[in-house]
Simulated scan of single mutants.
Amino acid sequence: MLAPSQFSFVFSKAIPAGSPTITILARFNDCGRARLGITVPKKKVKLAVQRNRIKRCIRESFRLNAHAFPNIDIIVIAKHGVADLSNAALHKQLSSLWKRMKQRCQ
């Protein structure tokens, strides 16, 4: 998802799932597939290298789990402390959030 209107659509009536470092919001769509939007604010993660690493990990984790989602738009929001996580820890946290989101969207 790229357009601000798509993000606003999800924010208006979102189904949340969260952890101390990541929040996931979702809402059913009419596209026929799951879509992903990512926000990693500069205030929360200072260095561009870290922001890009986090976004790559989120995209890869979503790619591996997208087949199991219904038709939903998902927004992943990074919080303070996410830059301190290793890639393995980030993938582990995301996989538990994906499972929680699947349960809430059924």
Rank of each mutant, 00 (worst) to 15 (best):
G32M: 12
N29D: 04
E60S: 14
I58D: 04
K55I: 13
I38T: 12
N29P: 06
R59S: 01
A34H: 10
I58E: 09
A48I: 13
N52E: 00
A66E: 15
R56K: 02
T39D: 03
R56P: 07
Q50C: 06
E60W: 06
R35W: 00
V45I: 14
I58R: 04
R63K: 15
L36G: 06
N29F: 03
L47R: 14
V49F: 01
F62M: 07
A34T: 15
R53Q: 14
F62N: 12
N65M: 06
L36I: 09
R59W: 07
A48Y: 12
G37R: 07
K46N: 01
V45P: 04
C31P: 00
I58N: 03
K46Y: 03
T39N: 10
S61R: 09
V40Y: 03
F28W: 10
T39W: 00
P41Q: 06
Q50S: 14
R56E: 11
C57P: 02
S61A: 15
A34S: 15
G37W: 12
I38E: 02
C57E: 13
A66N: 10
K42E: 14
C57N: 10
R53M: 08
C31R: 15
A48D: 13
R56I: 05
I38P: 11
N29M: 07
A34C: 15
G32R: 00
F28Q: 10
P41I: 05
N65Q: 11
P41S: 13
Q50G: 04
R59P: 03
K43P: 00
A66Q: 15
R51M: 01
R59E: 10
K46T: 01
K42L: 11
